[in-house]
């Protein structure tokens, strides 16, 4: 059964029960769900038992989704799960160390896993302008502005609040592994992170990874002046700007894109 299609075309066919976070799913709720599916006799009892365990499993194992599809009723009146899909809340992995054994790294995007290990949040996209930003919201906004100025972002990359020279070097390495990348926009609004620290990390990283594409750096916030000075007094070929719009325009121009 395609549940998304059911939700769209016949939403009334979906029955919902809200699990009380402190008391769990109540007996009356379980029975009402079984009633709403038109179950009677032993199938009713079988379903009530199953749905109760499902709710316990969801909470006990810190799931973010448990789906049974299809769920069938045998002629003998027993409910049987023929297939299922479960996803876990990664933030709760510390309570469930056994989950590590279920992990199949071959099913994961290798670069994203490596990025995560360096404290970075990375998602590859199809464009040609690499982005290195502090903060998830600002990272998305940077991609959006690149697009508004006629460019195409190559990735989402949030260096996080605890970034340092090592993680910034790792970030440059990951961006440059993508053969489509023709230029990089660094967008930092310093808060806890200081722009001068980022500037020095950029210089070191560019030497280490052999930066060979145009680089535009936008600094604002904590120590932005010092950051700019550090970059401008270095040998690095870099365009510095103080607003995001100028930064996006400069990188799109530098790779010869846009209008």
């Amino acid at each position: 059964m395609d549940i998304e299609e059911v939700a769209e075309k016949t939403p009334e066919a979906i029955h919902k029960a809200w699990v009380d976070p402190l008391n769990g799913l109540g007996d009356e709720q379980k029975a009402a769900l079984a009633d709403s599916l038109g179950l009677t006799g032993s199938a009713h009892g079988s379903f009530v038992e199953m749905i109760g365990r499902l709710a316990e499993m969801f909470v006990g194992l810190d799931c973010s989704m448990v789906e049974i599809n299809p769920l069938v009723r045998t002629e003998g009146g027993t409910m049987v799960a023929l297939d299922s899909k479960v996803s876990f809340d990664d933030n709760a992995s510390f309570r469930h160390p056994w989950r590590a054994e279920l992990r199949d790294r071959s099913e994961e995007e290798e670069t994203e896993v490596r990025a995560k290990r360096s404290g970075l949040s990375y998602v590859k996209l199809d464009g040609n302008i690499g982005c290195l930003v502090n903060g998830a919201g600002l990272a998305m906004a940077s991609m959006d502005v690149i697009k508004l100025y006629g460019g195409e972002p190559a990735n989402f990359l949030d260096i996080g609040g605890g970034a340092n020279k090592e993680s910034i070097t790792a970030a440059f390495g990951i961006i440059l592994e993508d053969p489509n990348v023709e230029g990089i926009l660094v967008n930092i609004f310093g808060g806890i992170i200081r722009c001068d620290m980022v500037a020095r990390s950029i210089i070191d990283a560019s030497a280490e990874v052999g930066l060979n594409v145009p680089l535009v750096v936008r600094f604002s916030g904590t120590n932005h002046e010092q950051g700019k000075e550090v970059l401008e007094s270095s040998d690095l070929s870099v365009i510095t700007t103080s607003t995001l719009a100028e930064g996006a325009e400069a990188i799109v121009g530098a790779i010869g894109g846009g209008d």
């Binding site: 996209l125 919201g137 959006d144």
Partner: peptide, 23 residues
Amino acid sequence: GFVAGATAPPGKRMGHAGAIISG
């Protein structure tokens, strides 16, 4: 008002746990 993520691909979590276009 501004909304971040006009260029975000569907089904990918963009940093924040809640920032995902699903279905």
